[in-house]
């Protein structure tokens, strides 16, 4: 069966890409999963974590596992939009005539690592974010499409906030997921020491091509989702809004704005990828639960009190999921809950 073969191809590609990345990256299974799900869902992923936790290495390794071009931009305060998208330069041909020629910037790559994205000015950030949203850039009046697949992995450091330009909420919304790179456990730390302080023996194989990624992205969208799971997604998004009548207390107290509909889209697409990666042909409520935090944590804007109290947006999401599950069966009879 052709469809079955496509699904098997997806499972195989996903698993092999994951295992290639895990050859180099120790631990961080949830981050690797978020990145891979983001890749197949057709979005861009924001990685947040303290320096030295392997964010950049993860992205580089992923790029090594794919037969795709890779570029990296180290964001600094003096970085200009032209440094990202490219610019028109004057060139002289053999006959001595001068003309403008477009010199492509690093954004014209398949996989783009935007390292420490919050260190560049908003103007420069927006140059990248426009490309992420539209899939094309406009330079000198000419619109140039970006190569497909175009996958941006941006990193930001949450502790060195001085001299940074935090991404505005509207721009954060363009990342399908935000993964938090946490400090490794002691066993993982031991493995990192072992693996990184001796000659590198492991080679990352290229397991997938660009067209294959695009093909598998199309397959993801065919995965069906049952209506009660879809309703649960909507309820989760609604319960992140303080104005919603069934919003939990923690949301009412600490949230200024809840998630946008993009949050719901991200959850469903992520859940579809997750289901396919497990060889399943449908989205389950468990997939939605797994994708809720990465899809919503950067879309919830805390109010001043929430910021002052140090409320974690993951807590808000967890409460929202609980409330949504309760609400979904509230009206049902005891044996049908």
């Amino acid at each position: 069966m052709a469809q079955d073969a496509r699904v098997q191809e997806f499972v195989k590609s996903f698993q092999s890409l994951r295992s290639e990345v895990q050859k180099i990256i120790v631990g961080h299974d949830d981050v690797i999963l978020s990145v891979l799900v983001g890749l197949f869902a057709g979005g861009h992923v924001l990685l947040e974590g303290a320096p030295g936790l392997g964010k950049t290495l993860l992205v580089r390794t992923l790029a090594e596992g794919l037969e795709l071009s890779f570029s990296r931009i180290q964001f600094t305060p003096d970085l200009m939009p032209a440094d990202i998208v490219g610019t028109n330069i004057i060139v002289e041909d053999t006959s001595g005539r001068k003309r403008f020629e477009f010199q492509q910037g690093p954004i014209f790559g398949h996989i783009l690592l935007a390292d420490e994205i919050n260190r560049a000015t908003p103007k420069t950030q927006s140059a990248l974010l426009e490309g992420m949203q539209e899939g094309s850039v406009t330079v000198g009046g000419a619109t140039r499409p970006l190569p497909a697949p175009f996958f941006v992995l941006a990193t930001q450091n949450p502790i060195e906030m001085e001299g940074t330009y935090p991404l505005p909420e509207a721009q954060l919304d363009r990342f399908i997921f935000k993964a938090r790179v946490r400090y490794p456990a002691i066993e993982e730390l031991n493995a990192i020491i072992e693996r990184t302080t001796r000659p590198r023996e492991v080679e990352v194989r290229r397991v997938m091509t660009g067209p294959a990624v695009l093909r598998l992205r199309e397959l993801v969208r065919e995965v069906p989702i049952v209506s009660h799971v879809r309703d649960m997604v909507s309820l989760i998004v609604m319960t992140t809004h303080p104005g919603f009548e069934h919003a939990p207390e923690v949301t009412r107290r600490f949230v200024r704005y809840g998630s946008s509909p993009r949050g719901a889209q991200a959850m469903v697409l992520g859940a579809k990828v997750l289901a396919l990666s497990q060889g399943r042909y449908n989205v389950s409520a468990e997939d939605i639960r797994a994708m809720a935090a990465p899809a919503l944590r950067h879309r919830i804007i805390l109010n001043f009190e929430g910021e002052a109290e140090g409320i974690d947006s993951d807590t808000i999401v967890a409460r929202a999921v609980e409330s949504a599950e309760r609400l979904a069966v509230r009206e049902k009879e005891v044996f049908l809950r």
């Binding site: 069906p224 989702i225 049952v226 209506s227 009660h228 799971v229 399943r280 449908n282 989205v283 389950s284």
Partner: peptide, 11 residues
């Protein structure tokens, strides 16, 4: 059954 039956019935 991870919502298999409900999804299959509906779809």
């Amino acid at each position: 059954l991870e919502d298999r039956v409900a999804t299959a019935f509906e779809w």
